[in-house]
Structures are given as structure tokens and as C-alpha cells.
Amino acid sequence: MKLFTSEDKLSRVVTDNYHLLPVINRFGIRLGFGDATIGEICAERDIHVPFFLVIINAFHHPDYFPKSEFLKFSPRLIVDYLRHTHQYYLSWVVPKMEKQLENLVESSQTNTEDLRLIILFFRKYKSELLYHIKDEEDSVFPYVLRITAAYEDGVPLSEEDWGKSIETYEKEHSDVDEKMTDLKNLVIKFLKADYNDNLCNDFLITLFRFERDLIDHSRIEDKILVPMITRIENILKNDQ
């Protein structure tokens, strides 16, 4: 496994794995960076280089997930990255999948009934996903930032926050993941192929890419953010 380093050109990262394009965007980096290296580009934009490298390497190699590296970063960096990821899902991926499904229904001659069921199922999945994300944005992440402020800057915690714990806060991902798998199997295995094949392939490719992105995303929440905040909660409680 060859990991990307700060000396690598960012253009090479993109040509090696185009799935990293939206990941790079989440750091505010846009294309047109010539032959600049990762180190140079990050310095110019004030991006934390080790964090950037861990994120792209973990995304690029599904088996690479250096927990101890990750745990060294401030929760602020992690939350910031996760929020940009949510933004990408909400503003781009989810609407795109819905549009692709609608196009698929329109392309069907005789089987629109079944396809409409798939859309209905997709909307159910979507509403659960959006609810999960909203809960993180509105409750979990603000709490994480308050805990971090208490730990890093000594900002006092409210009475209410003392009673909370991240482990009960961050909801499980299993329900949402389950529906994504179901959706995939329904379309691939059971839906009668009475539609434009290319439109269906487009939809599935979006779905597969999204699945991969989500795995990476949930992994950072479950394996990094939660233990990180649990550790800080314990330190704060012991100091109290």
C-alpha cells in the first residue's frame, strides 16, 4: 500500500483515484492547481496537512484507518470535515439520486407501478438519512464543539451538558445502511428491467459511490469522533 505524502502532486492524487475529487472539494480545494504538491496547496489555503493526508489515504485505501493518528486531531477538524460531507450529500448526491430515479421511471414503458414503489422506498430512505444528518448537525455536533471548547479553552459546560454522553447521542447507522443495501438489491435483483439501461446504470453508479462515501463517513463518526469525545468527557468529569 502506497500512501500519499505531502510531496505528491495533487493532480496525481486525482488521476490515481477520481473518487477523491469530492473529498478534496470538502477542504475548499478546487481544480486548476497545476503541478503543485499537496504540501504547497495546503499551506496556501491554511489546511492542516496531516489531517488532509489521513483523510484522503483512508478514503483511498479502505483497509487503511490509522485510529491513533486520527485521535490526535482536534474534534473541531473532524466536525468541520463531517459537516462539509453532509453538505455534499444534501445539496448534491441525494437530489441527484432522486432525479436519476425519476428519469428511470419516465423511461419505463409498462412497469411504472413497480418503479414508483422504488421511488417511494427511496424517499423513505432519504427521509431517514436526512433526519439522521439533521440530528447530528443540530444536536450532536454542537455538543461536540461545546465539549471541545470546555476541554481546549476552558469554557464552562452547562448543567445540561454535564448530564449528556456522546455514546447515547450519536444514533446508530445500521437502519440507514440497511435501507441502502435493500434499495440496491431490489433494483439489481428483483426489479423487472423494463427501463432505459443506461439510466439505471447511472443511478446505480451514483448509489455505489455514495455507499462508499457513507462507509468512510460513518466510520469516522463511530470509530473516531465518538471515542474521542468519550475520552474528553471522562477527563472533564475526573477533573470536576
Binding site: L117, L120, D175, K179, D182, N185, K189, F190, L191
Partner: peptide, 22 residues
């Protein structure tokens, strides 16, 4: 056998395969 876990997913399967009438 089906690779479908959620109840709503199973409902879609059942309708598509005409096991139940929507």
C-alpha cells in the same frame, strides 16, 4: 435469501412479486 432486511424493503419485494396487492 433475498438480501433485504428492512420491513419496507420486504414490502416492496412482496408487491413487485405479486405476493400482496398494494
Amino acid at each position: 435469501k433475498l438480501g433485504i432486511k428492512s420491513i419496507s424493503g420486504l414490502t416492496v419485494y412482496a408487491i413487485i412479486n405479486r405476493l400482496i396487492d398494494p
